[in-house]
Design a protein around this nucleic acid. Structure first.
Lengths: 328, 328
DNA sequence: TTGTACGCGTTATCAT
DNA sequence: ATGATAACGCGTACAA
């Protein structure tokens, strides 16, 4: 592994430069030369050193992702697609978790920048002012991911959690539901959906919705218990909007154990359209978000920018879709 | 961002070397010197360049993870814990997905090695001979993760999928179940569990278990349909072992819709002990694996090795546990 | 088509 | 306690 281009050059009877060229841009040399170099490289077990290459060319071919603790199926799909898209284009993804409070977000960011990534994906949005400044000063192409926000640093791919809340409120209201509740995790995006949900209901002249929040990540059990609490408190209810399909599944269980019929007595909406949504009883009406698609688009967009091409649409709202099944 | 140690040195009235020392090993200098250097660095917005540092010191502080397409909750927990453990110790994780067949596994590996990671985590085990050779030749500390195998390259942290199959067979047999089936995804580890399961049943003199495999990742729906197929075929059944809790949930649904009582008529065992296992009806008996614990241990072990310390137990079987609830 | 000289930013090493 | 020098391995820029 201590083999360098110079060693390969000697073995092949060329100079280091020719080796470099043969390996990186084989088209610019006679096939014969390339062949000899490749042979020598293989014989010596040469593996190029991208650290050195990065230093010299100031291109790291590295993209850093800053994420809160990864959780949620759709989200994992998105990261997987992002990773794949980058890998396919010759980039590697390095992961930085901003979730835990061990390192402050800004420390993490500086840590990341010290690697001189060619691009950065910020999941959620960069809150800290110093962080934003650091990113802009470094003029590293930056893409915010997952949620639409008002002042993107540069590129942004996501969907509007507020729009979700509004649309679901309309949807349930249009179906004649009046006494609604929101059951969700307490992460920020879920809270945003709730506020929009409430706001729209108010505008529609419907009663203030009840809300039950539980610590993320929400589980089936917490959904079950959330509904239980509401019902035990005697709250009148004919529809619930859950912050995840998992919670909705819990609602199904609790409703069933109390002989409450879905959707007759209670309309249930989930979020995420997980794979099981179509297979539960009744099939779950949910909000679908294309995580994998977002990840792939993010990879493509970011790479384009990193290559210096112009990105025609730096901000993309990928939207969402209400998948209507039987539960609401 | 073009600020270098030399710039900081000038501003602080020292040499580049002193700046380097002040930033990296502050203890080795007078506090006053360190303070001045820090001040100058902050004023100039200096962020160290680890690419250059890596090249010179041949320590990248990078760990590469080679994973099949990430799927499964427990598994994601493990990766999250691994990332966190490494980050806390000053390393970054770079992700390489071996799942997709776009790049061959070996290409991916060479790509990874070109970054000169200080350590590599192979999820699952390195199959390809050339891959193994590449890793051993490079003498990069390597840790195989997730499943116990016979010839680890070096370090290994995981559990025995074979042991799971055996133990579950014993468990169901001990409870008097005789006509068993295995419902699972077709990934390799699931298949290993099945073979062990069958082998042990045979030794116990029980009938050959039926098996239904579906393409990974398995969903609730596929579990539901798998059971349906067996039942439609008139197979006699008093117990099933599922390759994931998700499949088991599907079995619950199908059983319920056919008026089959769990566990009276049918014992159901899951795998993974996902968060919902305790909240379904009846609570699901499952095999628990401590993903987060494994990830944390892997980080600790690998870092120890990378620092040149001796790793007393290079191979750790973290085991598993059957969590007995009501479904079996 | 191929080679030479130099520099990327840092740190190891030896000196003072 | 601090500095001078060189070197890590590669690619840019130019030359031949």
């Amino acid at each position: 592994l201590g083999v360098t281009v110079v060693d390969v050059a000697k073995a092949a009877g060329y100079s280091a430069m020719t080796v470099s060229r043969a390996l990186n841009r084989p088209d610019s040399l006679p096939a014969a030369t390339v062949a000899k170099v490749r042979e020598a490289a293989a014989a010596l077990g040469y593996v190029r050193n991208r650290t050195a290459a990065s230093l010299r060319s100031s291109k790291s071919h590295l993209v850093a992702a800053l994420t809160p603790t990864l959780t949620g199926r759709v989200f994992v799909d998105a990261i997987a697609a992002l990773t794949q898209g980058l890998t396919d284009r010759g980039y590697h993804l390095i992961l930085g978790q901003s979730g835990y409070e061990g390192t402050s977000g800004d420390e993490l960011l500086e840590d990341i920048i010290s690697r001189r990534p060619d691009g950065v994906v910020v999941v959620g949005t960069m809150q800290s002012p110093r962080g934003r400044q650091l990113l802009q000063a470094s003029d590293i192409p930056t893409l915010e991911f997952w949620e639409l926000t008002k002042n993107p640093i540069d590129m942004l791919i996501g969907f509007s959690h507020e729009a979700v809340g509004l649309k679901v409120a309309d949807f349930l209201a249009a179906r004649g539901r009046k006494h609604l509740a929101y059951l969700g995790a307490d992460d920020r995006r879920s809270v945003v959906r709730f506020h929009a949900f409430r706001k729209r209901l108010k505008r529609l002249g419907l009663p203030e919705p009840r809300a039950e929040f539980v610590p993320a990540p929400a589980t089936l059990g917490s959904g079950r218990r959330s509904l239980g609490r509401l019902l035990d408190a005697g709250v009148e209810l004919d529809g619930v909007f859950c912050s995840s399909d998992t919670i909705a599944a819990g609602v199904f269980y609790e409703a069933s154990s109390r002989r409450i019929k879905v959707p007759r007595d209670l309309a249930v909406m989930g979020f995420g359209d997980l794979s099981f949504a179509q297979d539960v009883d009744p099939p779950l009406t949910s909000v679908r978000v294309d995580g994998a698609g977002m990840g792939a688009l993010a990879a493509e967009t970011l790479v384009r920018k990193m290559l210096g091409e112009k990105v025609e649409k730096p901000v993309v709202d990928v939207g969402f879709e209400i998948v209507i099944r039987k539960s609401a």
